[in-house]
């Protein structure tokens, strides 16, 4: 294993120190327990948005803390959910008197830890609502599994719900908007290579030189199907068809599209892939209102990408365009 680290057990805390050093004007970092808040938290009279999850998906979630997006993020160990004490302390730190929305990616560990944290918060008199993101169409039979995983739509949801909270909308309104974003979003991911968790020291799975894994999550877990590599155009077609057929998206639908890198894919290739997607979208009569191309929800150094489509209306596009000022996403204002 070759990684830019000191000791595997110190990776998360040392990365937090770096975030604090890089963004002293924007972020505050707590180390015991670990969480990141926006520098001006708590914002009185505003619904607080709290998310979190395993580390290794940066910029998600810590990189999306700031005005117009999250109030707090709780990083767990690499690919391991944060613990209830972190989430409870973060929620208390950013509560502005209007309650908090917990944004949870649907992974068993995250759900169990956030549920336990919400119990702790409510026992202290804090108002907490939760939204579960479960947008991964690669999970076919969700009846006999832990359900669909939460992946790319999380990024779009944190932006849109964050804008609504920043406008002063109340907890019930922000929570119901967040749930609607989840219902309208779908994602699918693939990998060319595995990734290496620092504490494990070797790749999570092995792929042959010409093999790819379709339908991956974001933790280096194997996906839906192992197959042979193929040209980018065919990959995008296959993945986009799976996403489009699931909601289903129809001709004339307006969408926000995210072509996301898994951490080890060059931007050159991500743009090439987005070009393929844009052509396909035009063919199908989809109106791509806004897009993101780059690394937003990653899996350490994995080579691969994911496609997320969110069906939007005017209100969602307006919220999307609202100012945002975070390390990972920044415009307007």
């Amino acid at each position: 294993m070759k990684k830019a680290i000191n000791r595997p057990e110190d990776v998360v805390v040392e990365a937090l120190r770096g975030m604090e050093a890089a963004h002293p004007d924007r972020l505050r970092v707590s180390y015991e327990p670990k969480f990141i808040t926006r520098a001006d938290a708590p914002v009185r009279g505003k619904v607080a948005l709290v998310s979190g999850g395993g580390s290794g998906h940066e910029p998600l979630h810590g990189g999306f803390v700031g005005p117009g997006m999250l109030d707090a993020a709780c990083p767990g160990e690499v690919f391991t959910s944060p613990t209830p004490d972190q989430v409870e302390a973060a929620t208390r730190a950013v509560d502005g008197g209007q309650g908090a929305l917990h944004i949870i990616k649907n992974y068993t560990g995250d759900v169990l830890n956030f549920e336990t944290a919400a119990d702790l918060c409510r026992a202290e008199g804090l108002e907490v609502e939760a939204v579960l993101v479960n947008d991964d169409v690669a999970v076919e039979d969700s009846l006999f599994t832990a359900g669909r995983r939460g992946v790319g739509t999380t990024v779009l949801l944190e932006k849109i719900a964050g804008a609504a909270a920043e406008r002063g909308q109340d907890l019930a309104t922000v929570a119901s908007l967040a749930r609607r974003v989840n219902e309208e979003g779908r994602s699918f991911g693939m990998a060319f290579t595995s990734c290496t968790v620092p504490s494990a020291g070797k790749p999570t799975f092995d792929l042959g030189p010409d093999e790819i894994e379709l339908g991956i999550g974001i933790h280096g877990e194997p996906g839906r199907e192992r197959t042979t590599n193929r040209p980018a155009r065919e990959l995008v077609e296959q993945m986009a068809e799976t996403v489009l057929g699931d909601l289903p998206f129809a001709k004339g639908d307006r969408v926000i599209a995210m072509l996301n890198g898994m951490g080890g894919t060059p931007l050159l290739e991500l743009y090439l892939l987005y070009g393929e997607f844009a052509r396909l979208a035009a063919d199908r009569g989809l109106l791509v209102e806004r897009n993101l191309v780059g690394d937003y929800i990653t899996s350490l150094e994995m080579q691969g990408f994911s496609l997320t489509l969110l069906r939007v209306d005017d209100a969602m596009v307006e919220l999307w365009d609202d100012p945002v000022l975070t390390p990972g996403l920044r415009w307007g204002g």
Binding site: S81, T83, T108, G109
Partner: peptide, 14 residues
């Protein structure tokens, strides 16, 4: 255990 294990195992063993 709830504070240090993380994952699903933390709340479950906790």
């Amino acid at each position: 255990l709830m504070k240090t294990v993380g994952g699903a195992s933390g709340p479950l063993y906790g």
